[in-house]
Simulated scan of single mutants.
Amino acid sequence: MRMSELSRMSGVPVATIKYYLREGLLPQGQATAVNQADYGELHLRRLRLVRALIGVRGLSVSETKEILAGVSEHASDMHEVLGLVLGARPVDKEAPPPAKEAFDEVDELLKEVGWQISDHAPAKQVIAEGLTTLRSLGMDVGWRTLLPYAELAGRCAALDLDQLRDTDDPLERAERAVVLTVLLEPVLLALRRLAQEDESARRHRA
Score class of each variant (00 low, 15 high):
Met78Glu: 07
Leu183Gln: 07
Ala33Phe: 06
Pro27Cys: 00
Val126Trp: 02
Arg192Asn: 15
Gly40Pro: 13
Ala150Met: 08
Cys156Met: 14
Ala177Lys: 04
Ser7Asn: 00
Pro170Tyr: 01
Gly154His: 03
Val71Leu: 00
Leu146Pro: 15
Ser72Gly: 08
Pro186Gln: 00
Gly130Asp: 04
Val71His: 08
Leu152Trp: 06
Pro97Tyr: 01
Tyr39His: 05
Val178Met: 01
Glu112Phe: 05
Val187Ser: 07
Asn35Ile: 04
Ala153Gln: 03
Leu109Glu: 06
Gly138Lys: 04
Ala150Lys: 14
Leu171Phe: 08
Leu6Pro: 14
Ile117Cys: 08
Val182Asp: 04
Leu152Ile: 07
Glu41Gly: 04
Leu49Gln: 03
Leu42Met: 04
Ala37Arg: 11
Leu161Glu: 12
His43Gly: 03
Gln125Ser: 10
Pro90Asp: 13
Leu164Ser: 06
Ala69Asn: 11
Val91Asp: 03
Leu59Arg: 07
Gly142Val: 11
His120Asn: 11
Asp92Met: 01
Gly29Ile: 02
Val50Thr: 04
Glu63Ile: 03
Ile117Leu: 08
Ile67Met: 03
Glu185Asp: 14
Val182Phe: 02
Val71Ser: 01
Ala123Val: 14
Val14Pro: 14
Thr145Gln: 12
Ile127Arg: 00
Pro27Glu: 02
Tyr19Phe: 14
Leu194Glu: 15
Val81Phe: 01
Arg205Asn: 15
Gly138Leu: 02
Thr167Ser: 13
Asn35Gly: 13
Gln116Met: 12
Gln116Ser: 14
Ala88Val: 02
Gly83His: 04
Leu49Arg: 01
Asp107Leu: 07
Pro98Cys: 03
Glu94Cys: 02
Val126Arg: 09
Ala52Trp: 07
Ala52Tyr: 09
Gly40Cys: 07
Met1Leu: 09
Arg8Ser: 02
Asp92Trp: 00
Met3Tyr: 03
Asp198Phe: 11
Val179Met: 10
Gln125Lys: 13
Ala69Cys: 09
Arg173Pro: 13
Glu197Ala: 15
Phe103Ile: 09
Ala195Pro: 15
Asp104Thr: 05
Ala75Cys: 11
Thr132Glu: 09
Ala99Met: 11
Ile117Glu: 10
Arg45His: 09
Arg135Asp: 01
Ile117Tyr: 05
His120Leu: 03
Gly130Met: 08
Met3Ala: 05
Gly29Val: 02
Tyr19Ile: 15
Leu152Met: 13
Ala195Gln: 15
Asp119Gly: 10
Arg2Ala: 06
